Each structure stands twice: as C-alpha cells, then as structure tokens.
Amino acid sequence: MTKQKATLIGGTAILMWSLLALFTIGSAPVPPLLLNAICFGIGGMIGLAWTARQGFGVLRGVSWKVYAFGIIGLFGYHLLYFTAFRLSPTAETGLIAYLWPLFIVLFSGFLPGERLRAPHVIGALIAFSGAAMIVLGRGGEASGSSLGMGLAFLCSLTWASYSILSRRLGAVPTESVTVFCLATAALSVISHLALEETVWPVSPLGWAAVLALGIGPVGAAFFTWDIGMKRGDIQLLGVASYAAPLLSTLALVAAGIAKPTWTIALAALLIAGGAALAARASARKG
C-alpha cells in the first residue's frame, strides 16, 4: 500500500467523525457509556467480519501488550472525554479536547524517519484557530470546573499518544483493532451499569442513529485511522483532522439543527489554508 493511498484511507476517518455530532444528537436520550458500549460492539462485529476474511490466526500473533495499549487508548480516551464534559460542559472544554491534532503534528517529529517542518506546525496552528472559532461559537454552560478542563487536556493527550504510538506498531495488523473495540465495549458495559441509568432510543430514527454511529464514527473510523497512522502521512492527517469540527457543523446546518454564519465561512478558510500549507510541506518532504 502506498503512503498516498494510506493517507486517503486515514482521511475517511475524519469524514466519518464529522458525522459524530449529528448522529449523537439523533441517538438521544441514550447515556454516553451505554452508547459507547453499543457502538463499539457494532464496530467490533464489523472487525470480526473483516478479520474472518484474513483468518483469526492473525490475532493470535499479537502481543498482549499491544492489546492493552489499544484498549487503554480507545476506552481511556472516551471515558476521559465523557467525564470532562459532564464536569465542565463548556465550549472551552471542547476546544481543549480538540488539541489532539496539534499534538499529533508536534509529536510526529519524534518518530523514526519523520521530519517535522515549520509549515506543518504553522499549518496546524492556523487550522486550530479555525477549529477554535467553530468550537467556541457553539457555546455551552457559562462556567465549568478546572477538573473537567484538566481531564479534557488528558483526553487530547491520550488520543494523540494513541495515534502516534500506532505508528511504532506498524507491523501489527489493523485487524487487532477488532479486539480493541470489543474490549472497549465490554468495559463500557461495566462502567454503564455502575454509573448510568439504562435508557434506550425512543424511536426508529434513534436506533438508526445508534446503528450509523457504530458503523461509521465509532466503528469503521478506528480501522481506517489505524491504517492512516501506520502507513500514511501523519503530519498531513493531523492538520486535516481540524476539518472534522467544520464538517460536523456543516452537517448540522444541512440537517437544520444549526444556522449558517460568517464565522463558519472564515473558519473554513483558515482550516483549508492550514491544511494546504501542511500538504505543500508534505509534498516537498516526499
């Protein structure tokens, strides 16, 4: 698989994550950890079907340390994310949680064979400013706890570390994500039973939203992201990830949930400009 193809495959995860907010709204009133359990369960089933084509023997050759890493990454990120927003449901919390693409770009410089160029960092900062306009523009409660914001910061570090360290596990087959998903689903069930009241979707549309989440943003996206992180252009994918909040907002506008504003247009220019700058630097690197 070429680096360009792997980058394109990884980019599909960003497209799928742009539908996360829309489908999550549609899945109400299902509580977060229960939703996590259902969606990762669906994602794990997709992974089993994919792995069956290659043979399950490929999973037996993976070290338990790799499985522990993947499970901690997926479950830990989502647990920190949900807890952060429960303690501090503010726009600022969302912005802190969305530092992970910038961290991916910065941390990539420590990877063997990778060279971090100034345009990558500048592009990431420009794209981050565009994402900041989107996230802060959504608003939230007037005040939030410092603990919640601290957990949001740990959340962003967790996902960036998971993504970057996936590069170091390039020889590990992507089929291993199947186990990550199924174990995350099991841990989410346990956490849900301990912390939440069980509430199921109230309509066929709600069930459809849950199914769509499990198939895409909280399912197949983790498999395509794994391919992108292991074999693609990691700096370009990091900067391009800032398109997710923009595309998410556009999806909400198309669904009639949000209204179009000039802020969205300006954010689009900043994110596109930052991504273009990073892409140019990657082209020169190649």
Rank of each mutant, 00 (worst) to 15 (best):
G73V: 08
L79V: 13
I46N: 05
T51Y: 13
I46V: 14
G61T: 13
V58W: 09
T83D: 09
I71L: 15
S63A: 13
L87Q: 08
G44F: 03
L74M: 15
F85P: 03
L95C: 09
R86W: 10
H78G: 00
G61R: 15
F75P: 00
F75T: 04
L59M: 06
H78L: 08
L95G: 00
G55L: 15
K65S: 10
S88D: 05
G73L: 05
L48M: 13
I71W: 12
Y81L: 11
I46G: 01
A91K: 05
K65V: 12
A68T: 15
M45Q: 07
L79C: 06
G47M: 08
I46A: 09
G70H: 09
F56Q: 09
F82L: 04
L74R: 06
R60F: 11
R53P: 12
G76E: 01
V58S: 11
R60T: 11
L87A: 09
Y81A: 00
G43A: 02
L74V: 15
R86D: 14
G44V: 03
E92I: 13
L80T: 05
V62A: 06
G73M: 04
G61C: 13
T51C: 14
F56A: 07
F82S: 05
I72D: 06
S88P: 05
A68S: 15
G44R: 00
F82M: 01
Q54D: 14
P89S: 04
G73I: 06
A68E: 13
R60H: 10
S88R: 03
G94N: 03
Q54C: 11
L48H: 05
W64D: 07
G57V: 10
F69C: 12
T90N: 06
L74Q: 11
L79S: 08
V66G: 06
G61A: 14
L59G: 00
G94T: 04
F82C: 02
F69R: 09
L80P: 01
F82K: 00
I71K: 10
T93S: 01
V62P: 04
T90Q: 03
V66C: 06
I71N: 11
G73N: 09
A68P: 10
L59F: 07
L48Q: 06
I72S: 13
L59A: 03
L59V: 04
T90K: 03
G44E: 04
G73A: 14
T51G: 09
A49L: 15
A84P: 02
A91S: 15
A91N: 07
G47T: 07
P89Y: 02
G76H: 00
A84I: 05
F56D: 08
T90D: 02
S88H: 02
K65W: 12
G76W: 00
S88L: 04
Q54M: 10
A84K: 02
T93W: 01
F75S: 02
F56S: 08
E92A: 12
G61Y: 13
G44Q: 03
V62S: 07
Y67W: 07
L74H: 08
G43F: 05
A49N: 13
G47D: 08
L79M: 11
T51F: 12
G94F: 01
L87H: 02
T90E: 01
F85Q: 03
L87Y: 04
A68V: 14
R86Y: 09
L80R: 02
T83N: 06
A91D: 10
W64C: 07
G55D: 14
